[in-house]
Each structure stands twice: as C-alpha cells, then as structure tokens.
Design a protein around this nucleic acid. Structure first.
Lengths: 407, 407
DNA sequence: TGTATTTGTTGCCCTTGGAGACAAATATCT
DNA sequence: AGATATTTGTCTCCAAGGGCAACAAATACA
C-alpha cells in the first residue's frame, strides 16, 4: 500500500539517528576495503565533525566499522583516521544454476571471504535444492570465526522472484513455478533469507563495486547459457517494479520474423541472440564457454578469411544487430548513462564494438555528446555472489541499529 | 555527480524540520481540494499529534495551508480539523504545441484557476515562442490577487528536454535543436522557469491526481497528432534517466518490416500506430479529433459491416497489435502496476479492449493474477497544465521553508 | 624552528520531536 | 436527556541529537 518512495513517513528523533548511521555505514561500505577518511565522510554527508565522530563511534561500538591510521599522508593538516568496514558481519550468497549451486561467504564492502560449490542437475526440485543449499550453507557457517555473526542469506535466482516474500514465481531452468524456495530455506536454516532475480542483483553489484560505481542510471545485460537477463538502476535506486519482475530485457522484440520464444511471443532478444550457436560454430562445448571471447576475437582477426570464420563473423554481426535493437529500446526507455554487458554479451561486443556502437546511432540525440557508453562488466565470476550479499546486507545497511546491541 | 538518490547527505536538525514540513505539505497537496484531517496526517506520517500541530501551524503561518472545520462528522471522538492547501501560491503552466500555446494558472492541489491560449504556427522560432509565451504569462499574472504570489513557470515541451537546465534538445514539431527556451523565458519574465518532456509531466499529473493516484509503478502512453510519448513512474518517483530523456516509448521497435522513422530506425511504435490514418478512414479532420473515440466505437458497433467499417476495424486491429507489442516490452522492462493510455491511444483501446489485453498475454507471468491493468487517462485536457504546474511546484514541495518568510 | 592548515575532541546550546496529563467534542448506549 | 467511551487538540516538560566554538593535536611547508 505504501510502496511509494515519496516520503510519507515523517522523521522522528530516533529515525534521524538511524538514517544518519545508515548513511555513514553505506558510504563506508561502498568505499570497500579501502575505506574512507573521517574528513571525507564529513564532507560528503555535510554533517558536523563532531556528529561524524559520534556516528562512527557508535558504528564501531557495534563492531561494524573500525578506525585505523591513514597509510599515506598526503595533505597538510592533522591526518584523519581511515574508517573501514570490519568483516564481523557476514552474509551468505547463493546462486542456484543449471549445473551447480554456487555459494559464498561475503563481508561488508563486497569482499568474498570463502566460496563453495555443489553439483546440481536441471531436474532438481525446489525442496531438493533447498536441502542441498541448506547443507552447503551450514558448511560455510562452520568457517565463521568466533567474533563473526551471520546477517542472513541472499539468493540470486535465475528467474522471476516476487520481492515481497521471495517467492520464486518462475524459474525456467528448473521448471519451477511458484516455489517458496526462500521461505523453505529460511525455515530450514532459521536465518533471514531474501531472494531476487540474478540480473537484478548483478546490476546492484556492478553499480556498487563495478563498472557502474557512482553512476545513478545504468543498465546491465547478462548473456547466460539459457537466456538474457537484465537489471536496471535509475536515479541511484534499483528498478524493481511493482512486484520485482522489472528488467526482463530478454523479451524485448528485436525481430518480427523471428522464432517463437518460450514466453509466447516471437522474435524476442533471447531467441535471436544466443550463446549456443556461437559455441557450435566455434566447435566449443558448454564447459569451454570461458574461451568464447578469445575464440571470437581470433576469428575476427583472421586475415585470410576462411569459410568458417566468415560464417562466424556473419553470425556475430547478426546477433550484434539484434542486440543493438534491444539496447536502443532500453536507452530510449531509460536514458541510462552506461550499458554494462556481462556473460557472452561482453564477448560478442568485444568481437566488433563498432557494430553495436553504430547501431545505437539510430535514435534521437545519438549524434550529441550525451550518448551512453557501452562497457563490459568489471566484476568477474563473483558478481552474483556480491550482488546476493548486497541483498542480504540491505536491511543492515538501512538500519544498523536494529542489529546487535552495543556491547 | 551526486545525482544518486541513495542518501549521501546526512540529516541535520534544520533539514529534519524541512523534510517533515515537506512531507506534510506533499500529503495535503496530494489530497487536492478535499484536504485531509490533521488526524489522518498523524496516522500517515507516524509523527506525534503535537508535532503535526506544530508543522501545520508553520505551514499555515506561511500561507500555504489553512485549517477548517470538518464538514461531515462521521466517527466518534473529537473532530479533527481539515487541512487543505490555499490558493495563495500559484504557478503558471505552459504547453507549446503545433497550433497553439496553452497556458494556465494553477494552484496547489492541482486546481486550474485560469486558462489562456494563444495561436501559434509550426514554423515558430524559439525566440518568437518565448515572446508569445512571456506576454501571455504577463496576462495571466494580472489575474493574480493581492494575496497571491507566483512560485514559477513550468513548461511541458513536446520533445527532449535536458533536466539539468531545461535546454530543449530536440522539438521535432518546431524544428528546434538545442534551444534555450527555458533560460530565455526565465530572463524575460524574471521568474524561475523549469521545463520537461510533456509525457513525463503527463505521468506526473496522472500519477498524482489521476488514474495512477497512489500507485508507485505506472506507465503513461500518450498518442498525439505527431507521435507517441511516454512517461514512467517507478517506485513512486518519476523516471527521468541520466539527463531527462527517459520514457521515449514511441521509438520501441514493433515491426521489423515497418516504415523508417525520423529517428533513423524502422518500425518504431510511432510509425506504425498513428492518428492520421484513423482520422482519414473516418473522414474526420484534425480539428475533429475529439470525435475520434465515438466514431471508432460507432464503426465497431455497426452490425451490418460495410466495406468502410471493416476497413476501419482492420486498421484498428493492426494498430492495436503493434501497440500491444510496445506495451508488452514496457511491461517486461518496468513491471508496472498500471498502464495509462492518453490521447488517441485511449480511443484506440476503447474500440476493442480485448485485442490489447489478449496481446499482453504473450509474456512471462501473464497468466497469473499479478498482471497489469490498462486504463484510459482520467485527467482531461488539463493534464499537461497540472503536470507542468507540478514541475513548477516541485521546489516548493521539497522545501516549503525556502519560500516566503513567516509574516 | 616557526607558521599555516586541517582535523580530532570537548563542553555547551538550540532545535526538534515525543510523552503524558488534561480538556474538548463527538457518538452511542441506557 | 444524561452518562460513558472514544478520539483528538493543547499544553508543559523532557530527552536526544546535531551544530558550534574553543582548544589541542598533527601534519606540510617555508
């Protein structure tokens, strides 16, 4: 009912403190392991020196941040202590995929402390997946130090997830429909569990710690084995939509004469732009998909131009053309400053950047200097771990007081 | 640089008061001329009775709101006074269009106090338009009472407007490119002037006072004489994008085999779905476009099925099919709760609602109960006046203290 | 070595919202 | 009609939080 972000709740004296604590913690969190000096926090928040001191002290007493002497002393004046997140509060990130379930222990600041992987199959039922995940989480929990405490679990689901309660509405890979994965996992582990779409969490990670750091409007497009997912940040906030299903850019129409998609429409982006035909043309298996990028580049650099390489180039150009159409629609709709490409879309783009860039010219204002930039994702394979952890941390970041009383 | 909406600034004691004042004023503003009781404000904000009393008193002392006895006494208990906006603070709304420039004097709460219209031609230069507008605004200013004061001017521009400074980057109707319309008008009138895209302001109006009242995620699609514009609200906030060009849904691809659009691409929504062919088939002129809706309905209700009416039906179905594709893409991207159709798109939809609704079925989750609703716009011809005024009021609504000192 | 600069630290003040007691105004029940 | 319950305005006092100014500390630079 009150989902509107235009503030309706007033601010009391207590929520004032809470918001300021959250602001400081978020700033420190976003600065990652490098941390940021107390004077920087003063400048960025606009708060008084004494206030920042008090806020940092409270966060420190709760064990969330720690102060240290600055390593390099550059400017004149009394050096300001560096405030950085501790690794006492940790989250577990989970990403169930076709072949395996990946997990990680992640600390504040986006640092991956430990990884774990369990094999899975495509015909896994939701309750089986919960079982597998729960035991894997318990393995990770054993690695926790005595001082560390678990904030919760974040799950990056390849499918549609209802934000409200984490219900997995649709996960095509596993054939799940309306599976309460989140609730089951939560009751099995007795920990708070939250879930969201994988690409939505991808853009969260990339926008906080990756290529989109500090950028308020960006679109993330990820090409995976079985489709294309999208995540959007606008005005500095993740775009979830009414229920959390926003960002399904894989179902943008790119070809009226295209193949019918599993969604029922024809010529969707993800029916026209696929990894499988590229791998096939290159003679690579699914497991060798890491080599896709270099193989494509090799095919494009080949001067002689064999029959096979020209076939590859044609397919790449074809796919890039369709990708361009979808990206153009996204730009016209969202006016982002940055398009981040992940998965095989990054490889596709790298093979012939000019093709996509030119394709983006066919839109209003394209000629002006205010055009968007297309870049590959910066975060590597940890992106979903970081994004899922970000989700798990979100409550803590919004209200550091709610957790762990001061000692 | 700091365009991100994730709070970076801390909250001091002064901004605390400012935010609470703004929250209360916004709530009263959104409740329109009906106003809302003080007890309602207490409940909705979560603030204390005494605090609300103080805040309302301050707003009243600034002349922005006034209290009055409740008209109907429904429930038990001491009756709570009704707080409603006054019409002392007013804004001027401006909408330059092909044939005329429309203006209005608008008060808080979205009430249109006076209207004005001056003839215009399509070949109007920007400076000529500024001249015309400025004199028209001066006419409206004379209607101001002695107690009223002008907040500023808001302009709804049929084209791309840079949010930052109101520069009109592109207005195809007039052939304007990078015209500083806003700055010129501001210096000519010596008043604050802000500008934005017309459909963006349309969704603001419709989302605040119209069909989307209280809904945090909605898309507004408007069909005009010369194209289709779109405006988006997500998470309760208008979606502007990096520079203000978001919402250009008229350039979504709907037909790979379509006509080339002025944007350079082929088969855009606005090349396939147009008002002109409908009017032509119905034998209506541009001036008679108000009758389009009833004429279409008549053609659809005709039982016998003349040659002409079946042609009309075919064209309507064709256009609705393409509209459905664009709407589907928007839904997949934004997951709105509501699609609001304005202009001739509302007429088109009304002629055969089932066609569009069925077309939306071809998307993930369409079968579930969580599907979107499609509705016609509620606000009539005043929509852009209200939206533009909303823009002009936005600074006041965000910080009621900055204006007019307490007497 | 002295000076300018920046920033942490401390004590005090001001503003703001909250809580509670009391009064006022209404509906409802007897 | 009168008593009672309920809701809400009003008033006074209080506590908490941030700002400010003075001082001290720590650095760069001349």
């Amino acid at each position: 009912m009150d989902s509107s972000k235009t503030r309706v709740r007033g601010i009391g004296n207590d929520s004032l403190r809470r918001e300021n604590l959250a602001t400081v913690l978020r700033l420190v969190h976003r600065s990652g392991s490098a941390g940021s000096s107390r004077s920087t926090l003063t400048a960025r928040t606009g708060l008084n020196r004494s206030t920042i001191a008090a806020l940092v002290a409270e966060l420190a007493s709760r064990g969330l941040v720690a102060e240290s002497d600055p390593a390099i002393r550059s400017s004149v004046g009394r050096p300001s202590p560096i405030v950085a997140v501790t690794q006492k509060a940790v989250a577990v990130a989970v990403n169930p995929e076709i072949d395996s379930i990946r997990l990680a222990l992640v600390g504040l600041g986006g640092s991956v402390l430990a990884r774990h992987r369990v094999a899975a199959t495509a015909d896994l039922s939701a309750s089986q997946a919960v079982e597998l995940t729960a035991t894997a989480v318990r393995v990770l929990l054993q690695k926790l130090g005595p001082e560390q405490w678990m904030v919760g679990v974040g799950v990056a689901v390849p499918g549609l997830v209802r934000t409200e309660d984490g219900l997995v509405r649709l996960a095509p890979h596993f054939g799940w429909v309306d599976e309460p994965f989140t609730a089951l996992l939560s009751s099995s582990l007795d920990l708070p569990v939250s879930a969201a779409n994988d690409a939505t969490l991808g853009v969260l990670a990339e926008g906080t710690f990756g290529a989109g750091r500090g950028i308020g409007d960006l679109v993330y497009l990820n090409g995976g084995a079985s489709g294309i997912g999208g995540g959007i940040i606008t005005g500095g906030l993740p775009l979830n939509g009414a229920a959390g299903y926003a960002g399904e850019l894989g179902h943008t129409l790119v070809n009226s004469n295209g193949v019918t998609c599993h969604c029922g429409a024809a010529g969707c982006l993800e029916t026209e732009v696929r990894r499988a035909p590229l791998l096939e043309l290159l003679g690579l298996t699914d497991e060798e998909s890491d080599e896709l990028g270099s193989a494509l580049l090799a095919a494009f650099e080949e001067v002689s131009g064999s029959q096979r390489s020209s076939e590859i180039r044609a397919e790449v150009e074809r796919q890039l053309g369709y990708l361009g159409i979808a990206v153009r629609t996204a730009i016209n709709t969202l006016n982002p400053r940055l398009i981040v490409l992940g998965g095989f879309l990054a490889d596709l783009y790298a093979a012939d950047p000019g093709k996509l860039n030119n394709s983006l010219a066919a839109r209003p204002l394209a000629a002006s200097g205010e055009s968007v930039q297309v870049v590959p994702a910066e975060l590597g394979s940890d992106i979903l771990m970081v994004g899922a952890a970000e989700l798990a941390f979100s409550e803590l970041l919004a209200d550091p007081v709610k957790f762990q009383d001061a000692s």
